[in-house]
């Protein structure tokens, strides 16, 4: 075959491969939205499913998702950022750093179902938290730890050394320098990491099935909002999985549309944020 034709065929295959991904995404979004949006109405967002009242709603699941996102971030962000600061600012290259970096890589590679098993055994059984939002959050915080650490590390690496030298030269202690110079400069990177983590938490299901359980009721007003942490609570993804298992496809599509909206919104946010960072730099 002449070279020209060969090249043309190769180009075509390359373009096809690329458009396959785009088409796939477009197909998924259009299909889910077309099937999901008709399900949307006010009760869908403000009530919980009840046979007695005849309502189908996901308010409880939305609230559970918020709970889990907040609690997970509370546990994971300080630890993840701290680890990154240590790796980047304190540690001297050697066995310790290699061990921790290997641990980070490994943690990032462990599938969520294994986190789920571990969370169920350790937080649920050994620590006695049972099937609860707390168990789920702690499990997920382990899962997103590498994500936070890596993004923070990258952001810290991008802070020029002159900042550090300037601060130390002016007599600032290391902690003072980190608190007032490094962390604020690295903030866009850290926030990007957090947003990515929120995306993962919202989309997670396998790690939550056996840790946070599948409760879908709204907590009672008042102290119920605190004790809810120790009760079982299924996120949107879990509810969607259960709806599918019960062949309630309308509800499943409704939740899928909500999830896609969240994913799209967060992607947009990250895009805007990283673009701003370029402007600032």
């Amino acid at each position: 075959m002449p070279r020209k034709i060969k090249d043309a065929v190769a180009y075509m295959v390359i373009y096809l491969a690329a458009f396959y991904s785009v088409l796939l995404l477009a197909g998924i979004i259009v299909y889910v939205f077309a099937k999901g949006f008709p399900v949307f109405d006010l009760p869908f967002f403000t009530t919980v499913s009840s046979v007695v009242k005849g309502t189908v709603g996901i308010a409880g699941n939305i609230l559970n998702t918020v709970y889990i996102v907040v609690l997970t971030l509370l546990a994971a962000v300080p630890a993840g950022v701290g680890a990154a600061v240590w790796l980047n600012e304190y540690a001297t290259p050697g066995r310790g750093v290699r061990l921790i970096e290997f641990a980070t890589e490994t943690l990032a590679g462990i599938p969520s179902i294994v986190f789920g098993l571990f969370g169920m055994m350790f937080f649920g059984t050994t620590l006695g938290f049972g099937y609860s939002i707390l168990t789920g959050s702690l499990t997920l915080s382990l899962m997103i730890l590498p994500l936070i650490t890596r993004n923070t590390q990258e952001a810290l690496r991008a802070v020029p050394d002159s900042y550090r030298n300037g601060a130390i030269g002016m007599g600032a202690g290391k902690w003072h320098m980190i608190r007032t110079i490094l962390l604020p400069s690295a903030m866009p990177g850290i926030v990007t990491g957090i947003l990515l983590a929120v995306g993962r938490i919202v989309g997670e299901s396998a790690a939550l099935l056996f840790t946070a359980g599948s409760g879908y009721l709204l907590p009672e007003a008042g102290s119920g909002f605190v004790s809810k942490i120790m009760e079982s609570g299924g996120t949107l993804t879990i509810q969607m999985y259960l709806s599918l298992a019960r062949a309630e496809y309308d509800t499943a599509f409704g939740i899928a549309a909500v999830l896609l909206c969240i994913v799209l919104a967060f992607n947009l946010l990250i895009k805007i944020l990283t673009r701003n960072k370029f402007f600032a730099g």
Binding site: G203, F253, A256, L259
Partner: peptide, 9 residues
């Protein structure tokens, strides 16, 4: 970013 349950659905 699409959750795996959505792929499943």
């Amino acid at each position: 970013g699409i959750p795996s349950v959505v792929y499943g659905l």
